[in-house]
Design a protein around this nucleic acid. Sequence first.
DNA 1: GGTTGAACCTCTAGTAGCTTGAGGGTGTAA
DNA 2: TTACACCCTCAAGCTACTAGAGGTTCAACC
Lengths: 142, 142
Amino acid sequence: MLTIGSLARKTGTKVQTIRYYEQIGLMPEPGRTEGGQRRYGDDELDRLAFIRHARQLGFSLEAIRELLDLSDHPHRPCLEADAIARRQLKQVEQRLARLEALRIELQRMVHECSGGQTADCRVLEVLRDHSECLTDHDEIGA
Amino acid sequence: MLTIGSLARKTGTKVQTIRYYEQIGLMPEPGRTEGGQRRYGDDELDRLAFIRHARQLGFSLEAIRELLDLSDHPHRPCLEADAIARRQLKQVEQRLARLEALRIELQRMVHECSGGQTADCRVLEVLRDHSECLTDHDEIGA
DNA sequence: GGTTGAACCTCTAGTAGCTTGAGGGTGTAA
DNA sequence: TTACACCCTCAAGCTACTAGAGGTTCAACC
């Protein structure tokens, strides 16, 4: 039986995050000691590891909820899980492309900075003049 | 004189976002009509364009606040602006590296999906088994 | 058995960067 | 004058946590 603290250490999660996952129904309510402290078994450890791994891959909590649901029903077709993963892959690829464009623009800004006064600063100038911008209009929340 | 709506259209911003920027002091309080509606001039247009461009490049609102401040003082040395841009570039490069690792892992998951039942689903299996994971433990909030 | 101290508990509020909604007022063209 | 698109404020909601206050429990040591 694991305390919440050791479960946290084993999975690289913060204690509060585990309680948060329980609160939003992603983790089940665990057993408790007489004094009211949570105690976890291996099932919960696996489930939390699954969640954390999926989070590291950038899946949203909602996507993870779906994936866990699929994982609980081993005889359903796996098309859905595949679709979720493909969606995620597409998002990652889009983010990569945008970040790459940003990197190029930032690098250009930085390389051209002459180190003089802000009046001549290339960084500020580029930000001021959108016409030199390589990126599209829509990308912000990356 | 621009209404808030036309300013929004010109800069690709939402009306509410402009009011939000005003609320947190990033945009100045504009003039108003007798009826209390906001009216903007070219200075505000430039400032908002600057903000949006910087946001597209991934700068935080706090960083933008600093950049705007520097931009308002043309005779100060531009080292600070340069430092902010370099910091941003570094972050972008780190994110790129992590996203690339994620892309590889996701692609592997998706390519190995056989399209059968969830019991044999490669996507779920990979998520379950962290030992095959290529990524480090720390990355989540990307 | 008593005492310590780390780890646990609940609850509330805060973070970034907006977005949405309710409920109502304004500006302009026909 | 009437229609209606646009504007106003204020409050709450979003994701995915994180931090803190104020109090309780567990396990080890003496």
